[in-house]
Nucleic acid binder design. Sequence first.
DNA 1: AAACTTATCTTGACGGTGTCAACATTGCGA
DNA 2: TCGCAATGTTGACACCGTCAAGATAAGTTT
Lengths: 199, 199
Amino acid sequence: MTNSKKYHHGDLTKSLLDSASSLIKEHGVESLSMRKLADVVGVSRTAPYHHFKDKNALLCALAEKGFYEQEELLCQLLKKTLPTTDLFKQYVHLYLEYAQQHSETYDLMYGRVIWKAGTPTDSLVAASRQTFKTWIDWVETLQQANILPADNSPLRIGQTTWASLHGLARFYLDGIYLDKEDLSGMVDQMIKNLCRSTH
Amino acid sequence: MTNSKKYHHGDLTKSLLDSASSLIKEHGVESLSMRKLADVVGVSRTAPYHHFKDKNALLCALAEKGFYEQEELLCQLLKKTLPTTDLFKQYVHLYLEYAQQHSETYDLMYGRVIWKAGTPTDSLVAASRQTFKTWIDWVETLQQANILPADNSPLRIGQTTWASLHGLARFYLDGIYLDKEDLSGMVDQMIKNLCRSTH
DNA sequence: AAACTTATCTTGACGGTGTCAACATTGCGA
DNA sequence: TCGCAATGTTGACACCGTCAAGATAAGTTT
């Protein structure tokens, strides 16, 4: 029975996530519907509900995947042996590059759809917390290296610094007050704003 | 014919905007539907379509109103005779206060729903541009007063600075990485990050 | 191998959405 | 007063998320 039409799909969970990923990448989150997704994967309307409690759960899974991707990316960077200042600069560039190349996932990870309109899954909350903790720990190092300001706790500085990056990403992604070509110059200026050493 | 049921409503446009405003304030933008809105106002499903081309247009109108509100608020502040540094600090506090107290409108003004998923009205674009221009002009003054960094054009500094405020607002509003009580301390730290004078 | 259980997938149905088309009513200018 | 444009109405359509009930396959126990 190697025929194309099998009753059981094989690994629907993975297929759903993969297709959903590429669907939102191409057409945006708001145009993703469970029914279309099921159709693309080649399965009936309600089949996905055996793998995800509801649409919110599926979106959370996508966001969670995003957190692990992003963390992996940044952890890889931190392994490099470079002057800490350069490391930080590359970190910032990488952060915005990720937001740019995975804009829809980024929106899901930090956006309103899940965190305000929806209800974040426990495991999503865990993933986001871990990402945040990794960041805060590194902020402490950056403070000690006199790169980030040391006039407040790592938590506070971590929050404000990340908020700055996040705001930049959002303006860029939403296309308000920020032309696409401006990004590079923008990022450089933001780095200057954030770094004590360049003052 | 002063009876409650009149065929013509009076000023439906205004009523729609008012009701929509308070509906989103209470239940969030995503739960606002044209049908429910019409029902609240006491009019049939499709009546609003004689006043707004579609839902997007109505949301744009709400956002536009927000821009004028916000600009009014800030212009009032600038009239005060205070040391420029204090003025800037109050500006930042006021910005986040506005975002906090009109969170749903703020989301509409700067968020994805209109700027990415939807299509901003011409007049909305105009309003946002004006707000931005006012800001950039003031940034120039702030640079001359040595409050904001002068190592780049007013445009660039204006973009990055605003992005920082915006990111803070979003983290706060979406409730990620930021407890409600943290806001005040957060804003103070952000001001320290942004201001040259406090370095 | 047969029987039973569980995971997976199916169709049908319900109430909700935005919005188009066709028609009714009203107020205002000629 | 007539007629037209503005404003309101109901009906219809194609979507949406998701629940309920039943079909089918795979896996487990005897």
